[in-house]
Simulated scan of single mutants.
Amino acid sequence: MRLGLQVPSFTWPGGAAALGATFATVARSAEDTGFASFWVMDHFFQIEMVGPAEDPMLEGYSALAFAAAVTDTIELGTMVTGVTYRHPGVLVKTVTTLDVLSGGRAYLGIGAAWNEQEHRGLGVPYPPLAERFERLEETLQVARQMWAGDESAFDGAHHQLERPLSSPQPVRTPHPPILIGGTGEKKTLRFVAKYGDACNIFEMGTEAVAHKLDVLQQHCATEGREYAEIEKTTLGTLSLSADGREGTMTVAQAVDRFGAYAAIGVDQAIVSLAAVHDPVAFELVPELVAQLATITPAGR
C-alpha cells in the first residue's frame, strides 16, 4: 500500500515572503520520507472546510511545477481540478507540460467543481450541476483523445476543438493517470469506470468506502472495464506521534487504520499532515511508509 501527501493549506509562519522556501521544504520532505505522491488542491480561494477564503491559496499547477523542480521521483497532481476552471484543451496541455518537465510524474486529477464562491469572486462561469457533469465528460473525452494522438476535430455540446494537437506527448505511458474525485454513484463512479485510471474517495469509514467500491465494480462490469486496472485512493488527515497523545496516532495505529482500507481494495491512502510546515510532522513517516509497503491491497 502506498501513502500520498496532500497540502491543502499554506497558512505558514513567515507569510508570503517565506512561502516558497517552506513549500519547497515540504515537497522535498515528502519525497525524502517516502510519500509516493504529492497533491495540492485546485482552488483559488481557501475552502471553508480548511479556513477562511482570505487565507493564502496557491494556484495548483504553478505550485506543482515548482514542486517538480525541487523533487525527483514523487508523483504530482491536483486533488482535484474543477472542470470549469480551464478549457479542456488548455488543461490537457498544462498537465502534459507538467508530465514532460517532471520526467513522467503527473496525474490529471479532475472533478465536476463545486466552490461557487471562488467562481463568482474571480468571474469564472458556474453552470448548473448537470451541465458541469456534461462538461466533465467532454473534458475526459478530450484528454483521452489528445493523449492518443488523435487530432481529429472534437465537436461536443459545450466544447469544440478544431485540431486537438498535443505536442509533445506525455512522457508517462500511455498517459498521465486520470484520477476522478468524488463519490457520486450514478455519474462520477461511472465516469471512473469509463474514462478514469484512478478514483479518490473521502476516508469515510471502511463500510462506506467498500460500498462505493462495490458500485464502481458494477460500473466496470457494465463498461467492460477491468476493475483491477483502476487505482483506488482515499483522502483523509493524519497526525502522528510516538505515544498517540492528544488525538494523534501512533505508527501502529495508523498501520491498522490504513490496513483496514487496503483490505477492501484501497491502493493508496492520501493524507494531509497537521503542521506540515514543521519538519517534526515527517519524523515518523518513514516507519509508517515501510510498514504500509508490506501490505498488499485486496485484488492486487
Results as ranks from 00 to 15, higher is better:
Val124Glu: 05
Asp55Cys: 12
Thr81Phe: 05
Glu151Gly: 07
Gly60Asn: 10
Asp99Arg: 01
Leu129Phe: 08
Leu64Pro: 15
Ala68Cys: 07
Gly123Val: 00
Ala63Phe: 12
Val142Lys: 00
Tyr61Cys: 06
Val124Lys: 05
Val100Met: 11
Met146Arg: 10
Thr73Val: 06
Phe133Leu: 05
Phe133Ala: 01
Ser152Tyr: 12
Val92Met: 07
Glu134Phe: 01
Lys93Arg: 15
Glu138Arg: 03
Val83Pro: 01
Ala130Trp: 04
Val80Trp: 02
Asp99Trp: 02
Asp150Thr: 12
Leu129Ile: 13
Tyr107Lys: 08
Val80Leu: 08
Glu54Val: 12
Val100Ser: 09
Leu140Cys: 10
Leu76Gly: 09
Met79Pro: 02
Glu138Trp: 08
Leu129Lys: 12
Ser62Ile: 11
Leu140Thr: 08
Gln145Trp: 09
Leu108Lys: 04
Glu116Lys: 11
Leu58Tyr: 03
Thr139Asp: 04
Arg132Thr: 02
Ala63Leu: 14
Thr97Asp: 11
Gln145Ile: 09
Leu98Val: 10
Gln117Glu: 14
Pro56Leu: 14
Ala65Met: 15
Glu75Ala: 14
Gln145Phe: 08
Gly60Pro: 07
Leu140Ala: 10
Val142Ile: 13
Ser152Val: 12
Leu64Ile: 15
Ala112Pro: 00
Tyr107Val: 07
Gly111Gln: 03
Leu122Val: 05
Val80Ala: 09
Tyr85Arg: 12
Ala106Ser: 10
Thr78Cys: 15
Thr96Met: 01
Lys93Thr: 07
Trp147Lys: 01
Leu108His: 06
Thr81Tyr: 08
His119Arg: 03
Thr81His: 12
His119Pro: 03
Gly111Phe: 05
Ser102Gln: 09
Val83Leu: 06
Tyr126Val: 04
Asp99Tyr: 05
Ala69Asn: 13
Asp72Lys: 13
Asp72Met: 00
Val142Asn: 00
Leu58Lys: 05
Ala106Asn: 05
Val92Arg: 00
Gly77Trp: 05
Asp99Cys: 04
Val80Ile: 12
Thr71His: 04
Val100Asp: 08
Thr97Val: 07
Ala65Gln: 14
Tyr126Ser: 05
Arg120His: 13
Asn115Tyr: 15
Asp99Gln: 07
Glu116Leu: 05
Leu140Glu: 09
Thr94Ile: 15
Ile74Glu: 09
Pro88Phe: 00
Arg86Met: 13
Lys93Ser: 11
Gly123Glu: 02
Pro56Gln: 14
Met79Thr: 10
Asn115Val: 11
Glu151Val: 14
Ala106Val: 07
Leu64Tyr: 14
Asp99Phe: 04
Val95Met: 06
Thr94Gly: 12
Thr97Tyr: 07
Ala112Asp: 01
Pro125Glu: 02
Met57Cys: 14
Leu76Thr: 11
Leu58Asp: 03
Gly82Pro: 07
Val95Asn: 02
Val92Glu: 02
Leu91Asn: 08
Leu91Glu: 09
Gly82Asp: 07
Val95Trp: 01
Glu151Pro: 06
Pro88Leu: 01
Glu59Leu: 01
Arg86Glu: 08
Leu140Arg: 09
Pro125Val: 00
Tyr107Arg: 12
Val70Ala: 09
Val142Gln: 00
Val92Ile: 14
Thr94Asp: 13
Thr94Pro: 12
Glu75Phe: 05
